[in-house]
Design a protein around this nucleic acid. Structure first.
Length: 554
RNA sequence: GCGCCGGUAGCUCAGUGGAUAGAGCAUCAGUCUUCGGAACUGACGGUCGGGGGUUCGAAUCCCUCCCGGCGCGCCA
């Protein structure tokens, strides 16, 4: 991308200046450039002179001037200036910029893809909500973040595997099984109530009904007896199917659904990992429970692996799961995306990864802060009476997949957010989703009209794209590769919707100022159609990565 | 009490070492005989939570205090 070429140019200028004796010899720091806020400061600005003034024992302005004299010629760069207190400002040439229209249009949907990831195998695990209930609004945020990040990393050349960890074992599942059995018995007229600590939601009754329709009274046992484990597992399966459907409504698809239970099954990683930890003397028994002596590894406390009732904790199976990720499946990198309420879990999982022979620096845990639901000024409680919650499905069905994803992506992950249902639904200028999609539909409309009138971009002379609005739009189009790199480096998908709004804005300005289809100016029309094609490509790509549709009309 | 996250324009948020701190919405004032007005232009609006420090340069890094959210050994 152009930014990296500019960095390269500045680096070469430094070496050339040193070789020519205009600057003294010293080890050069890494060169960085940025986009100045003010356009008169150029397209790229390097602060190198300011940073090396001490090393050079010269005034920053003089260093910058020495650098400027040695910047090699480059087809994209029309001018290099020095500005106080010592910036080196580089300007892109109008002709080169104009030429990018055809380069982008030709790249099509591959535009902004890169091989930065070099095929590195990376696993992204997200949502992974307990299958004991429907997936709720907060999980939706994780879904939007995770799947968007996955899309972008694929575009950046990573070999990505998206995974949902199904907590189909443990206490909560057992409680779900007992709740389900109570509901199941109710369907046969037995006077039983949902257990005290059970799941009061109506959905469990629906699950029971479905099982009764399929299997009749097969799971009914004499009164007072415990339910079969099979019933619970069947119920979990039904819940997982629902979760899969709910996430599919949001455009989220996984490569793999990984069963926690399978870890504990014969040949699963759980026993091997426990043996491994025992061998390494990381395990102590105390108060009837088995503990991971994590405080010896710098953690603030020890953590229970096996409870006094003999059941493994979530933590224990999670260690086994990460053993599977790092040691057995040998992912180069692992990203876990969790709600902020799991924050306390982060350092102990990292400690465990180190203990089992993994490299904790290859584990990134992306935490997102919690979501509150709003309808205008009105707060919407996430859980209503009797265990009923506002589900993700409710939200998607009310405001649509596009608005749901866009709104979840907008704030950075470590910002708590209010999801405003009223705003997300609004078809007005208050709603940024429509602003961006409208830009795409508008372009599609003009392109369709051009086809109608028999005009095309074939043989366009891009060098006619000299209007300020055209050049501003071109600059925005060139930014997408940098945005994708930032998303990958910061694990920050929120940059995408912000960029999308900027891009849409640049297009709308262009549209207002520049007539595209103009019978009086066929050459300019062709050139502008080419620019439109490029803009459409970039807008569609940006929306596509977010999992938001790019409509031809609205 | 300890840990993590946040505090930036009236509201919702970008911006994590650069130049005069940005955007959307809201408010006010404008733009259309032509490709989609779900648009465009301008104005108004800031002690970047407070204080101290580091630096040529701090919203950004360090220290400290205040406020809010989340979490803190047998839930996940």
């Amino acid at each position: 991308m152009i930014r990296d070429e500019i960095i390269e140019l500045v680096g070469r200028a430094l070496h050339a200046a040193q070789a020519a004796g205009d600057l003294p010899q010293f080890a050069a720091p890494e060169v960085t450039v940025e986009h100045p806020q003010r356009t008169e400061h150029g397209d790229f600005s390097a602060n190198l002179a300011l940073r090396i003034q001490g090393l050079a024992k010269m005034k920053a302005l003089e260093v910058a001037e020495a650098l400027r004299r040695h910047v090699p010629a480059h087809e994209a760069v029309s001018e290099v200036r020095v500005a106080p207190p010592g910036f080196l400002n580089l300007y892109l040439g109008a002709g080169w910029l104009a030429g990018q229209a055809s380069a982008i249009a030709d790249a099509g949907e591959r535009y902004a893809s890169s091989d930065r990831g070099a095929g590195q195998r990376i696993q992204i695990e997200y949502v992974s909500a307990n299958p004991t209930g429907p997936i709720h609004v907060g999980n939706g945020r994780g879904a939007a973040i995770g799947s968007t990040l996955a899309n972008v990393m694929v575009a950046a050349g990573y070999d990505v595997e998206q995974e949902y960890y199904v907590n189909d074992a443990g206490t909560q599942v057992a409680i779900f099984g007992r709740t389900l059995y109570a509901r199941y018995q109710q369907l046969f007229g037995r006077d039983v109530t949902v257990p005290e600590n059970g799941y009061p939601g109506e959905y469990v009754l629906d699950v029971a009904r479905g099982i009764k329709d399929q299997a009749g009274d097969r799971f009914l046992r004499p009164e007072g007896e415990e339910p079969s484990a099979e019933l619970g597992q069947l119920g979990i399966q039904v819940m997982v199917d629902h979760i899969r459907e709910d996430l599919a409504l949001m455009g989220v698809e996984y490569d793999r659904w990984y069963s926690e239970r399978s870890l504990q099954a014969e040949g699963g990683a759980y026993n091997r990992v426990l043996d491994l930890l025992r061998q390494q003397k990381h395990v102590v028994e105390r108060e009837g429970a088995v503990w991971f002596a994590s405080s010896e590894l710098g953690e603030s406390k020890d953590n229970v692996l096996i409870r006094s009732d003999g059941m493994p904790t979530y933590y224990a199976t999670d260690i086994a799961y990460h053993y599977d990720k790092f040691i057995e499946r040998k992912f180069d990198r692992v990203i876990d995306i969790w709600g902020a309420d799991h924050q306390g879990h982060v350092s102990r999982v990292k400690a465990a990864v180190a203990a089992i022979g993994g490299d904790p620096s290859k584990l990134d845990v992306l935490l997102y802060q919690l979501v509150a639901l709003r309808r205008g000024d009105q707060a919407v409680p996430l859980s209503k009476r009797a265990g009923e919650i506002v589900t993700l499905r409710d939200v998607v069905e009310e405001v649509g997949k596009d608005a749901t994803r866009f709104f979840f992506l907008l704030p950075s992950a470590n910002q708590t957010m209010d999801f405003d249902l009223e705003l997300a639904k609004k078809q007005s200028d208050e709603n940024p989703v429509y602003y961006v999609q409208y830009a795409h539909a508008r372009i599609a409309g003009i392109l369709a009209k051009a086809v109608e009138q028999g005009i095309s971009a074939d043989g366009a002379d891009a060098s006619l794209l000299t209007h300020e609005a055209e050049q501003t739009l071109l600059r925005k189009l060139l930014l997408l590769p940098e945005v994708l790199e930032t998303v990958v480096d910061d694990l920050g998908p929120h940059h995408l919707p912000h960029y999308a709004q900027d891009l849409a804005s640049a297009f709308h300005v262009f549209y207002t100022q520049c007539r595209v289809i103009d019978a009086e100016n066929p050459d300019l029309s062709r050139a502008r159609l080419l620019l439109l094609e490029a803009a459409r490509v970039v807008l569609a790509r940006t929306l596509g990565l977010m999992g938001v549709s790019a409509p031809e009309q609205m």
